[in-house]
Amino acid sequence: MIEKILSVDNVHKSFGGVKAVDSCSFSIDDGKITALIGPNGAGKTTIFNIITGIISPDNGKISFMNHDITRLSVSRIALSGMSRTFQQARLFRYLTIRENLLLAKRANDEEMKSLLASFHCYKTLDTVVSELSYGQQRIIELARALLFPHKLLMLDEPTAGLNQRARHELKLVLRRLRKEKKTVLLIEHDMDFVMDMSDEIIVMAEGRVLRKGRPAKIRNDPKVLEVYLGK
């Protein structure tokens, strides 16, 4: 019995006169990796922010594990089992790597080091994160999101800023998560990554869902190509 761990139901959001999200509806299957793709301005990050509680929608409903989370606060939603990263890495810049990770989970040094090592990051845990390169910061943010107890992991453009090696490691991590029956929803522009990793793809354009389906189907869909290549 496939459970819909997350449902977005007819969500609208306007900023000023601009409709960022328009009658957006979709649902995510438990234990799968779903990619959310679409041209810039399609509303992907906005819907992410609505789901995680940062923005409240004008209309519509968000359900997470059968609970209505539409009006809940960011921290309540997070505690119910949602972890996320941001388009631009957000870290606690005056704190060390260890402190950043501790805020996600009371892990010990060993666990932290091995998680970082799996991304080929060997910086000492006492390093203040503002001293790290952007790519390393993205890895730390990813590690932090992974450590935070979650049932749903939401990644906003996780491959941006990562080199080939780190990208490869990310794939391994995601596959491992899938094996552990964790659910992943990610926004991505790297099509190779998306086609390789996703079980399901949702295409958004102009604030609404255009298509949803398996990678093979989406890859050849004329509507999708049109939206990407421009009218």
Partner: peptide, 21 residues
């Protein structure tokens, strides 16, 4: 104290990690 500093550095991230700001 760590939560305090997290709030100072990035309130949004702290919220996303479940802290009651």
């Amino acid at each position: 104290g760590l939560v305090f500093q997290a709030i100072r550095d990035d309130e949004l991230s702290a919220a996303v990690l479940g802290k009651d700001i």
